[in-house]
Structures are given as structure tokens and as C-alpha cells.
Amino acid sequence: MHASVVAIVSALAASVVAVPDIAAREVYATWPADNFEMKCFHPGGCTASFNINAPAGYYGNAPAFNAICNPLSAEQDGTPNCKAVTDLAAGSYVESLWEEASTPDGVKLTVFHVWNEGETRYNASGSVEFPSSSTSFEVPVTSITAVL
């Protein structure tokens, strides 16, 4: 009996060690954002806006973007919520999503940049959490997917 308990505990310990450290994920690029402003209404919730941009080639042949975003909460529909300040490459767009932060005074945002290269569609994304009093932040791009 003792041997089987030790084996189970050892297996559990090994599985815990095998869990990847999310904080150690590869960062492909960083998108700077500024002019963050949040307004809350009682009752009724909060709204926010911020500027975000990236240079051409921040990853491979990714096109540049410069947009003003009004992030949606996860409960709202997926209507595009970032407007281009400068022309975007054909078929590309930027979106943002407002998620629940880990602290009451925090803001958590996920930003997506989608573009086409020939028949391939790319989606780069990253999330950031910061104090609601901040006016600027950086979004680390930690995911890039391609679909043919």
C-alpha cells in the first residue's frame, strides 16, 4: 500500500513539473500602447480607449498598424473595435478584448492583429495586465498562428 501511495505522489509531482511556465513563453514582439483612458459609469460599467501600433516586419512580413481601440468585454459581441489611424494592409485588422483582471484596480486586455500573406492568414496576439491608473503599457506578442 505504501509503495502505491509513493508511486501516485511521485507521478503527481512529475506532472506538476511538466506544466509549462506561462510567464516564460516566447515573446515575438512588443506593441506599445498609450493614451489609455478608462471611464466608469454607475450603474452601467466602464469604457476604455487606447492607441496601439506596430512597425512593419515586427514578425516576418507582418504589416504595420496604428489604431485606436475601444476594447469590448468578453460578454459583448465580436464587433471590430479598433479603428485604423493610418491605412491598414488589405484584409488586415486589429481588435481588442477587455477581460477580468486579477486585481480589483487592474485592467487586462488582449489585442489581436490579423493579416494575409497570399493564401495564408496570420493572427498575432498578446495579453497584458496593468493598473487602471496607467496611461501607457506594452503588449507582449506571445502567440502567432497561421492558417492556410
Rank of each mutant, 00 (worst) to 15 (best):
A3P: 07
A3N: 13
V5G: 06
V5M: 13
A7R: 12
I8E: 14
S10P: 09
S10G: 15
A14Q: 09
S15N: 13
S15L: 12
V16L: 14
A18C: 07
A18H: 01
I22T: 11
A23K: 13
R25M: 14
V27C: 03
Y28I: 04
W31F: 03
W31G: 00
A33K: 03
A33W: 02
A33R: 01
D34F: 08
M38A: 09
M38N: 04
M38Y: 03
M38E: 13
H42W: 15
P43A: 10
G44L: 07
G44I: 09
G44E: 08
C46H: 02
T47W: 08
S49E: 13
S49K: 12
S49N: 12
N53A: 14
P55F: 14
A56C: 03
Y58V: 00
G60E: 11
A62K: 02
N66E: 12
N66A: 12
N66Y: 11
N70A: 13
L72R: 15
E75F: 15
E75G: 12
Q76I: 11
G78T: 15
T79F: 12
N81D: 13
N81S: 10
A84E: 10
A84C: 06
V85D: 05
V85M: 08
D87G: 10
L88C: 05
A89E: 09
A89L: 04
A89R: 02
S92T: 09
Y93P: 01
Y93F: 13
V94P: 03
V94N: 02
V94L: 05
E95F: 10
E95T: 15
E95V: 14
E95K: 14
S96D: 07
S96H: 04
L97W: 08
W98V: 03
E100L: 12
T103C: 05
P104D: 09
D105T: 11
L109H: 06
V111C: 00
H113N: 03
V114S: 09
N116M: 09
E117M: 01
E117I: 04
E117V: 08
G118Q: 06
E119Q: 10
A124Y: 01
S127D: 04
P131F: 00
S132F: 00
S132T: 03
S133I: 09
T135W: 01
S136I: 01
S136F: 05
F137T: 01
T142S: 06
S143V: 07
T145A: 06
A146M: 05
A146E: 07
V147L: 11
